[in-house]
Design a protein around this nucleic acid. Sequence first.
DNA 1: TAAACATATGAGCGACTATTCATATGTACT
DNA 2: AGTACATATGAATAGTCGCTCATATGTTTA
Lengths: 123, 123
Amino acid sequence: MAGKSVSAERCDCEVIHEDVVNSVRTKMPEEETLYDLAELFKVFGDSTRIRILWALDEAEMCVCDIAYLLNMTQSAISHQLRVLKQAKLVRNRKEGKVVYYSLDDEHVRMIFDQGLVHINEDR
Amino acid sequence: MAGKSVSAERCDCEVIHEDVVNSVRTKMPEEETLYDLAELFKVFGDSTRIRILWALDEAEMCVCDIAYLLNMTQSAISHQLRVLKQAKLVRNRKEGKVVYYSLDDEHVRMIFDQGLVHINEDR
DNA sequence: TAAACATATGAGCGACTATTCATATGTACT
DNA sequence: AGTACATATGAATAGTCGCTCATATGTTTA
């Protein structure tokens, strides 16, 4: 509580550029916003889901199509589609027994493209 | 091996829009590219790392600054900075004992912004 | 109604990962 | 050389996650 113990409990250092830190702190978005952002990228952070999204960007497909395309179990695909739907990245349409999935966000492709730019940068 | 077993082993369905699947298949990027893309987004998929990147987008900071800003252990931050560096998202500069980190990619902000657009879309 | 089939879902398992704790490395100062 | 300090790192742990397997749901057709 007194003198130098400004640095709280977590940070075990002494020298701090407090002006910089305070300046940055005021510019940071809300904690919750950054948390939501991380949650969104977590969804992109799996190659199965990336492949599904990429495929759906090309054409609307049913669960079975996707499973066949990616050579994976129908169950595995279905589970992942649920994740993607919760993240509001895909929508579905029912036609008899068959459920067709498609992209629900035109920004997905832009985000992917930006990611590709980064990947291709360092080669 | 005969007749209907076109659908391989993984996909346990029968009805498939093979034309669509084949068309999509030709348009899909290489497996490795999508894998790398997922790896990149995996790095973004953690709120600690997102916060670090956002902070560094505002100003260059030393490890201790970041730990103080985010109220986290120096060790935890250091571990995450290593991940970010391996992903070529941050670079560092040494000045005596202190190591300053900064963003190593101007696309990060654009990717974040696109992500925010998605998040804010459905409210 | 019964069989066939596309899809969804819950439980369980193995793999991965973020943090903590202890300690090592490297630099500055006395 | 020795102390102080900023940072890095390895091991251990707790929590998360993707897939599989079994099964449920819902729709079509006979």
